[in-house]
Design a protein around this nucleic acid. Sequence first.
RNA 1: GGCCGCGUGCCAGAGUGGUCUAAUGGGGCGGAUUGCAAAUCCGUUUACCGUCGGUUCGAAUCCGACCGCGGCCUCCA
Length: 547
Amino acid sequence: MPLRVHNTLTRRLEPFTPRDPGRVTFYTCGPTVYDDAHVGNFRSFLAADLLRRVIQSPLIALENSPAAQNAAAGQTHRRVIHAMNITDVGHMTDDAEGGEAGEDRMAVAGRRLQEAKKAGALPPGVEIDPRDPRAIAAYYAQRFLADARRLGMLVAMDAQREPALMPRASEAVPGMIRVIQRLERAGFAYARGEPGVRAVYFDVQRFAPYGVLSGNTLEQLRAGAGGRVSDHNQSQKRHPADFLLWKEDPRHIMRWPSPWGEGYPGWHIECTVMSLTATRGRGLDLDALTLPGGEPLIDVHSGGEDNIFPHHECELAQSCCAFNADPARGTFAGLWFHPRHLFINGQKMSKSKGNFFTIAQLTERGHEPAAIRLALIGTHYRSNADLTEQLVRDCHRAVERWRRVMDAGAPPAGARPEPVPTSEPVLRAFAAALEDDLNIAGAIGAVNTWVSEIGSPTPRHAAVLGLIDDVLGVLSLERPKPQDTEIGVFLGGLSPDQAVIAKLIERREARKAKDFGRSDQIRDQLAAMGFNIKDAPGGKVEVSRRP
RNA sequence: GGCCGCGUGCCAGAGUGGUCUAAUGGGGCGGAUUGCAAAUCCGUUUACCGUCGGUUCGAAUCCGACCGCGGCCUCCA
């Protein structure tokens, strides 16, 4: 059965049919970089990464592109042009209708960094001018990319070769201005206000399907709009749901010249521009691009569920109006893909609760990237996954179990990966589950059943698992290197600790003397210090962090 | 109020008309191994699938009602 995925736009499971299966275009709404990303951000980015890996896997059939007959690990069956933006401009602290009020988040971030700097809380070696918004953005972007690569997000790896795949909003402003002008010329946008405080709005009433994506109607939005937007701004709009495309503000922390004065772009226009420039290549002319038949401009558009409204609704509206000969026939993206939010220990994550983790925090607690990735992709993307440390630990054990197959069956170094028929039963079961709206639990279940039936792993087993892991993306991640000392092997990124080593030596002496009471006492002491130990063959002791 | 979804064993979570006397992982229990642990391996335990009714030869799976729970619509992926 070819790949079917739930489309937010139609609220149905649909066969995924890219316009050109040899060149699938995929755009993910990426992070804002005025703070560190948290595990919830990564859950939704990793769901997109999983979909991308599924689409390009030789195991997977599409409606208009069959699976491969034979495949080897590391081979890509379809080319996916996956782009993800980095938003470094345009988000305000309040006002739902497009950044007309409130403080710029980058300014808030600057203040926070300033305080951290004063308190000496910045990581060592970090030199950053908290008054420079671009420096702040660059700082957090680089931290985001490091985590993204650690977790095997292919888009972040691609971007190392091809930076255009992860464009910065601040660098796309000229393109945004051109699209706004185009919308204005065609009568979909209008300017209001005196010079100095001008604003350009999108006219939602000119786009009849406005609301298709989120299920809203203009009537409902009119009812709900009260109280969120300043009366002054609201009164100058033609409709309360009209959203901002450009805001003139000569005093703003980040501003660009424009036909409507110096200012900054609205929230939604950046993705209209970057999704096209990043996936369509250099030859794209934003002034000339016109689609006669309403065909999608990109094959997949993803983002967290909170993006559905207003962000993607507005993006769809302005994109269709800008580029489609008949806007009402357009959908902008063929597949709108929205993973649900992540919970932490059964609780909704939110800034106000302050209950979010960063990847670094999980790593410090002794969890390795492979386990974190598996935990984050392991729940169906349209369920509210719940992240617990127990889950990450379970995932770690699964990863270790799979590694034994991979390691024991690894072909000699330098050997080419062995191609295997994709009709292999476990591969068929694995692919069939994923083809059914990314049924990851079913897919992992199939892998586990197969793994538990393997007696002694062979290179062929490893080759099969390699194909599976091209999709899951956990075994290829870097593992923390064990640090070896004469007595202890420090696992999970731990550095040898003198106090621990002293305890281990003492314990070895006690065991030599058959003083097992003392030996167990020392183990308890180490546990109290936060370390688990395990006796390994050869007299060494493996030391890991107690999670 | 609008849109969407869920209710399966101790827990998480697959299964969407017959092979379900219901995957998989965790937990529990028993055993092997270990000085003891941990890890690993072997075995084993637990579900009439929210309630009621309907369709059907046949339903966890389709339909209806009811009860319960949740998500998004607001900063936030």
